[in-house]
Write a protein that binds this DNA or RNA. Structure first.
Length: 393
DNA sequence: TTGGAGTCAATAGG
DNA sequence: CCTATTGACTCCAA
């Protein structure tokens, strides 16, 4: 019986003393020795031989991130468990991050070691027969603590409660400021001067998206222009481009996942989404845009359903140069094929998790456009030219 | 420095 | 309460 690769081997838990590492705050960059980097979770996983998560991530075979998130979402909703609780106690991530991860998991092979960690944790959690039970217990404890708090301290703050089960994996909460941002007024309110959080107006986003289509990698000069035209801080524009590129890229990955692994499993739950995200705008440079139609005629042979096999190999995407060497790449992924295990969500509760499919391959156009942009950008950089645009293809 | 990957955390809707 | 979105930040590699 091929149980999932990350099955756990029940053991007593030996949670080391929890060490609060206040990262981000002070201290010098280089610290002596390498006290294990990471392992913020006080209770990452129950049993398992004393491996650290990092070690497990490194040894982990390829996991089906899509199937994992699908299963996790199912288990959480079925048991009325929230992302916050799950994220904070199981993954060591905040609610927003969990939401994002569950909604748009990147394919395993596109993840960095760090990025794989949450998925390994999720798989481990799914393998734990008492995962739900444990989480529910925590939920109860939280509630209890909450009740106690508001009861005993009706009028004030304070009260350092919690510390439930000796595990308080909170990690964030780092003051982190000191960014001497001289503003108009040296000092204003004394209590706190939290930055209001910029919220871009729809028109501003539109303008930025338009700019992105023109130049996904605007030069500092262009960024300045955009910033002044839109009346935004330069850093905001820079951040926007970073984020937008990153998110566009991720969408392409997602479609890659969905496009791969075809097979009609008659999934009751369909990934749904995709299709036309809110913004109709973006999309690969020039031409085309929504409307799939394709009245036949020029139908470039695209993937069109292939290997009935499981894993979603390939990845043909990858921005890649024409590279001088004609042989290009061996394309095989020696590394990731070490563990041929297809992976499966053995699952602790309820089984059967047929990955769904969505025959509709929307962008592929976008992917190519993105790669092109990427290539162009790199070529430009290599050529040391500025403001090249006008490449026209 | 620049860009990418991961996240955080504020905030908008339910 | 809960979840989704998203500007900003940290870390890291080239």
């Amino acid at each position: 019986a091929p149980e999932s690769p990350l099955s756990s081997a029940e053991e007593s838990v030996k949670s080391q003393q929890e060490e609060q590492m206040c990262r981000a705050s002070i201290q010098e960059p280089s610290e002596t020795s390498e006290s294990q980097p990471g392992t913020p979770l006080p209770l990452p996983l129950p049993g398992h031989s004393g491996l650290s998560i990092q070690e497990m991530v490194a040894m982990s075979p390829e996991l089906d991130t899509y199937a994992i998130t699908k299963k996790v979402k199912e288990v959480l909703t079925d048991n009325n468990l929230g992302q916050r609780l799950f994220g904070e106690s199981i993954l060591g991530l905040t609610q927003g991050s969990v939401s994002d991860l569950l909604a748009r998991p990147k394919p395993w092979h596109k993840l960095s070691l760090k990025g794989r960690e949450p998925f390994v944790r999720m798989q481990l959690w799914l393998n734990d027969p008492r995962n739900v039970e444990k989480l529910m217990d925590m939920k109860r404890m939280e509630k209890k603590a909450y009740m106690k708090r508001r009861h005993s301290s009706i009028g004030e703050s304070h009260s350092l409660e919690t510390a439930l089960s000796g595990s308080d994996l909170t990690q964030g909460a780092s003051p982190q400021n000191l960014s001497q941002q001289h503003q108009q007024q040296p000092q204003q309110q004394q209590p706190q001067l939290k930055k209001p959080r910029v919220v871009l107006a729809p028109e501003e986003k539109e303008a930025l998206k338009r700019a992105y289509q023109q130049k996904p990698y605007p030069s500092p000069k262009t960024i300045e222009e955009l910033a002044s035209q839109l009346n935004l801080k330069t850093s905001t524009v820079i951040n926007w481009f970073h984020n937008y590129r990153s998110r566009i890229r991720r969408e392409l990955f997602i479609e890659e996942i969905q496009a791969a692994a075809g097979e009609g499993g008659s999934p009751s739950t369909r990934p749904g989404k995709s299709g036309g995200e809110g913004d109709n705008s973006c999309d690969g440079t020039e031409s085309d845009s929504t409307a799939e139609g394709r009245p036949s005629g020029t139908e470039e042979r695209k993937g069109l359903l292939e290997s009935p096999s499981l894993s979603h190999r390939d990845e043909e995407g990858e921005a890649e140069f024409p590279s001088a060497s004609g042989s290009s790449r061996p394309r095989g992924g020696i590394i990731d094929s070490l563990f041929g295990i297809p992976e499966s969500i053995s699952a602790a509760t309820t089984a059967a998790t047929p990955p769904c499919r969505n025959p509709k391959d929307s962008s592929l156009r976008k992917k190519k456009a993105a790669n092109l942009n990427n290539i162009i950008h790199r070529l430009e950089k290599a050529a040391n030219r500025d403001e090249p645009h006008e490449w026209e293809f």
